[in-house]
Design a protein around this nucleic acid. Structure first.
Length: 427
RNA sequence: GGAGAGAUGGCUGAGUGGACGAAAGCGCCGGUCUCGAAAACCGGUAUGGGGGCAACCUUAUCGUGGGUUCGAAUCCCACUCUCUCCGCCA
């Protein structure tokens, strides 16, 4: 959620910033409603003050044995009715404003490149070069079934398109990767490991920015109004919902592994082969609550934490800064990390790291104190994948495949997998 | 799923129609005392909104939403959550 104060004070600036994201302008409407609600609030509060004053007098008089006249009570009844009507009005206006505000994305920071779509995003740096193979590297949708570790057909049988099963060395490798990443971030990068519910209440989805606007991308249980999380970012954001975090606690850094559920309705027909884009996948997610002054600098470190995984796995990767039109709804600044996959000859997005500034904190009513007794402030929130498992699996299978069809396990993972190689199936 | 009990400030907990944003204690902050600390004593200590340059004024909030009343933490209705017991169960 954007700051209403900021919209009041700098409407043109906000308008311009939203336009760079391709947003329709509802600022004018917000300002109009805001003026109306403030007038109504002033009136209502004046009436309430009058009623409170007279009611106190009635109480005092009564304690001295004097009953209020029917005339006075009728007048107070009338004032009360007027106040109730105005109160109703402020609620309606408040709902309208809220509804509009919930659909407005975060403002991009000044140094974010302006652009309409992913073509406007900028490659910041690259680590390594795509390796050259002396044989034709296979894509994972061939390798997986050939190695007997991915079963697409039976996954589809169970849950439909974009679901799959893994077996034998497949799930073992994924399990090893998860353990490796969680250990790296919690032991070396200072994150607290946390495990979380995979479903959340409606207001939790609103707090993170996924609802109301992106309901069609989420799986929903209508019976209990529970929503399946598309990322651990959703529950972590709301950990401190409606709380004031005590002084001297920030930064708070969490790392979690959860399943992620995405309907991918907007991507129908895209990436239909393999496990690049599926409805359910595991992801290790990093998340931070930080002081506003440090958020951009912490974002750089968070990106490096994600890059560290890539480096340790020996990946060729590049870091992109997303342009205004390509960023997520809640983000003010985003870096993506893409790793090279030799089989499908593609850069795969394995991580997206964002500074959401105070956008999620305001939506979720998360505050903190800088010092004991100080005024509460909104913290900034950061999130970043560290990393998404299926695409890491793709990169390992495709980049570490051998001419004989086997796949070598990266050195750092071997203590976790307990094997050095996924052997080719001897037909 | 069945039965019962409950939900008040950072915490414990009082308050059952009138000066209550709310006693008291604990905690925390500041001060006195002390070489220093502890103890003791004194003072302070919720959040959001509206108005105002400010001092400040005002409003709302006692799980949530409605209702009764001139006036609700207190009375009525609905809901949510927590705890205990029973049942079922990974």
């Amino acid at each position: 959620m954007l700051s209403i104060e900021n919209i009041r004070e700098n409407p043109d600036e906000v308008r311009r910033a939203l336009q760079t994201r391709g947003e329709d302008d509802s600022i004018t409407e917000v300002l109009e409603l805001d003026a109306q609600i403030r007038a109504a609030i002033t009136q209502r509060d004046d009436l309430n003050a009058e009623r409170n004053r007279v009611s106190r007098e009635i109480g005092q008089a009564r304690s001295q044995g004097q009953e209020a006249s029917e005339e006075v009570r009728a007048e107070m009844r009338n004032i009360g009715d007027q106040a109730d009507a105005l109160n109703q009005r402020t609620k309606e206006l408040g709902d309208q404003i809220n509804e509009l505000m919930l659909t407005l994305p975060n403002l991009p920071q000044a140094d974010v490149p302006v652009g309409e779509d992913e073509s406007g995003s900028v490659i910041i740096r690259q680590n390594g070069e795509p390796p050259v193979f002396d044989f034709e590297p296979k894509p994972h949708w061939d390798l997986g079934p050939e190695l007997g570790i991915i079963d697409f057909e039976r996954g589809t049988k169970l849950a439909g398109s974009r679901f799959y099963n893994m077996l034998n060395h497949g799930p073992k490798l994924e399990r090893a990767l998860i353990a490796f990443m969680l250990d790296l971030h919690s032991n070396e990068h200072g994150y607290t490991e946390i495990s979380l519910p995979a479903v959340v209440k409606r207001e939790i989805m609103e707090g993170s920015g996924n609802l109301p606007k992106f309901a069609d991308q989420l799986y929903h249980d209508a019976e209990d109004d529970l929503w399946l999380i598309p990322t651990a970012e959703v529950p972590i954001t709301n950990l401190y919902r409606d709380e004031i975090i005590p002084a001297n606690t920030l930064p708070l850094k969490y790392v979690a592994q959860t399943p992620c559920f995405r309907r991918e309705r907007a991507s129908a027909g895209r990436d239909t082969r393999g496990i690049k884009r599926v409805h359910q996948f595991n992801k290790v997610e990093m998340y931070q609550f930080v002081e506003p002054e440090t958020s951009n600098q912490e974002l750089e470190k968070l990106v490096d934490n994600a890059e560290d995984v890539c480096r340790k796995l020996g990946f060729t990767y590049r870091v992109l800064q997303l342009c205004t039109g390509d960023m997520g709804f809640a983000s003010s600044k985003t870096y993506d990390i893409e790793v090279w996959a030799a089989g499908c000859q593609e850069w795969l997005e394995v991580s997206s790291c964002s500074n959401c500034t105070d956008f999620q904190a305001r939506r979720s009513n998360i505050r903190y104190r800088t010092e004991e007794g100080g005024r509460p402030r909104l913290p900034h929130t950061l999130n970043g994948s560290g990393l998404a498992l299926p695409r890491v699996m793709i990169a390992i299978l495709e980049n570490y495949q051998q001419p004989d069809g086997s796949v070598v396990i990266p050195e750092v993972l071997r203590s976790y997998t307990g094997f050095d190689v996924i052997p080719a199936k001897t037909a």
